[in-house]
């Protein structure tokens, strides 16, 4: 079972190491982790995807809450908008360029760089969509993939705030 947790933390050096260390020490598995600043410059938001049953989820959330610099922890696995961004560098030649552009546009991707024999394509979406797109690109020859990891926000007016 996979869970997505949103964590509001103080924007201070060492906080990421503390969170990552906690996961390692307690034997929790991080599948992805994304961090960025928020509307307040003293706060950062982490989105962590963790695998495990409900018991593991409960422990993860409780242990995170014990960290002094962690301000709020919320399970955002359900009823959420989830997005990930990927940059893919894919090999291209005059014969398949058109095809690649077409597939990218079906995925609402954007060609953000064009070279003589490659494209860099940007795609956003949920994990399944990104995986599907990467799979489709394999046939052309993927040179590089960079994914941000998932970020997530619950639908509706309720907000994760201090």
């Amino acid at each position: 079972m996979r869970h997505t947790i949103a964590v509001l933390v103080e924007n201070k050096p060492g906080v990421l190491a503390r969170v990552a260390g906690l996961f390692r020490r307690r034997g929790f598995n991080i599948e992805s982790l994304a961090v960025g600043t928020t509307e307040r410059e003293d706060l950062s938001r982490m989105t962590i995807v963790v695998s495990g049953d409900d018991f593991v989820l409960e422990q993860v959330m409780k242990q995170l809450n014990k960290l002094i610099e962690v301000i709020k922890v919320s399970d955002v696995s359900k009823n959420s908008v989830e997005r990930e961004l990927v940059l893919i560098k894919v090999a291209a030649n005059p014969q398949n360029r058109g095809e690649i552009i077409e597939i990218a546009s079906i995925f609402r991707g954007r060609i953000v760089d064009v070279a003589r024999d490659s494209f860099v394509i940007e795609v956003t979406g949920d994990e399944d969509k990104i995986n599907a797109f990467i799979d489709l690109m394999r046939q052309y020859g993927i040179k590089e993939v960079a994914r941000t990891g998932k970020i997530s926000m619950q639908r509706g007016s309720k907000a994760l705030q201090v």
């Binding site: 060492g14 190491a17 503390r18 260390g21 906690l22 002094i68």
Partner: peptide, 16 residues
Amino acid sequence: IAGITMPITKHNYLVT
């Protein structure tokens, strides 16, 4: 030492 003691302190500080 702040890095070393991270998992064995309730909290720790490096004063910068």
